[in-house]
Simulated scan of single mutants.
Amino acid sequence: MLSLTSVEISTFIGTFWWPFCRIMGGFLVMPFLSSGFIPVTVRVLLALSISALFAPMLPTPPAVDAMSVAALLLAIEQLFIGFMLAFFLTFMIHIMTLVGAMMSMQMGLAMAVMNDPSSGNSNPILGQWFLFYGTLLFLGLDGHLVAIGILVDSFRLWPIGTGIFDLPLMGLVSRMAWLFASALMLALPAILAMLMVNVTFGVLSRAAPSLNVFALGFPMSMLMGLLCVLFSFTGLPSRYSELCLEALSFMYGFIGGTA
């Protein structure tokens, strides 16, 4: 009959379970892998495979009793570390959502959300489109492979049991400003172009009050907005690739790594 001692159980948990918790915490919020279209079983099996593959090469974890409260707290700590590491990528991917939302507000597409409250989705259709585009571009750049490599490398740079409060948590919070600034930078040309269109219709309404500006303005705003979206894609891939590299650099520097 197979029997395991508490020391053997603690060694097993330290070798496989805690790395699995950190990697799984990253998969909960990482772009594409956190999508509802990816079954939970696939994510769990992928995290188990990665932890089993790299566990023998990781630094020796601290000796903690498997049945103690300290083991539970350590597992939760690893989940939070993986969660915070992948949160940088969540900021990066939602830049595209904000870009689409800003353009939609200028084009009038944001009204579709107000007119369709039964959809249960607060994002304009253009924001969802930009989100899909950003996700595919991130996958095309092999950003998910680099992110998984940083998660694995985090066990060397930030070993298990080091603690969570010594991490630069304010650096994670400051990325919120980077999120809004990057989204505004990408959407600014389209916003300025649509502003000029709205100013033109404002002048037209003053020059010809009898003209139905609303009947003419909404279709023209939509048409000009779609043209702005088309022109914005000429420089969007290269600029968004730089933002992906910045997000991965932030993720690597969060655990003390240097590029």
Rank of each mutant, 00 (worst) to 15 (best):
L28H: 07
S3L: 11
V113T: 13
L227M: 08
L245Y: 08
M105K: 13
I38C: 07
S68N: 06
I76C: 09
L85G: 03
L141N: 10
L227H: 10
E242Y: 14
L195F: 09
M194R: 03
V152W: 06
L172R: 06
M170Y: 08
I76L: 14
G100R: 03
A147K: 09
I125Q: 07
L167K: 04
F83Q: 04
R206C: 13
A55H: 12
T258V: 06
P124G: 08
I95A: 01
F27N: 02
M222N: 06
A177V: 02
V99C: 05
S10H: 06
L45E: 03
L46E: 04
L131D: 03
F87M: 01
S35A: 15
A47R: 14
R156P: 00
L48V: 10
R156M: 06
I23D: 02
A247G: 02
S49Y: 15
L227S: 11
F218G: 01
T90W: 12
G120D: 06
L216R: 08
M220H: 09
E8P: 07
A75N: 05
C228L: 06
M111D: 07
L126T: 13
M103H: 13
L245C: 02
R156W: 06
S154P: 04
G100F: 13
F165T: 09
V99F: 12
M92A: 05
H144E: 01
S104E: 07
M114L: 08
A207H: 13
P189H: 04
A110H: 14
A208C: 09
L243S: 02
L216Y: 03
L85E: 00
T135I: 15
S174E: 10
D142F: 13
M24W: 08
F83E: 00
W17R: 05
F91S: 04
S118T: 12
F88W: 06
L227P: 05
S51H: 11
G163H: 11
F32A: 12
A112M: 15
M103A: 03
N115H: 15
M224K: 02
L72S: 02
T200P: 03
F87E: 01
P124T: 04
F32L: 13
N198K: 13
A259I: 07
G120T: 10
S210Q: 12
G161V: 08
T15E: 03
L48P: 02
L58N: 05
L179F: 13
D142T: 13
A183R: 01
I150F: 10
L73P: 01
V197H: 00
F20A: 03
M111K: 13
S119D: 01
A208K: 10
S119K: 02
L230Q: 05
V40G: 08
I150V: 11
S10G: 12
I255A: 01
G253T: 05
L243D: 02
G26M: 08
L245F: 14
G26N: 02
S34R: 15
R239E: 06
Y133I: 07
E242N: 12
S10T: 11
S205L: 13
A55F: 09
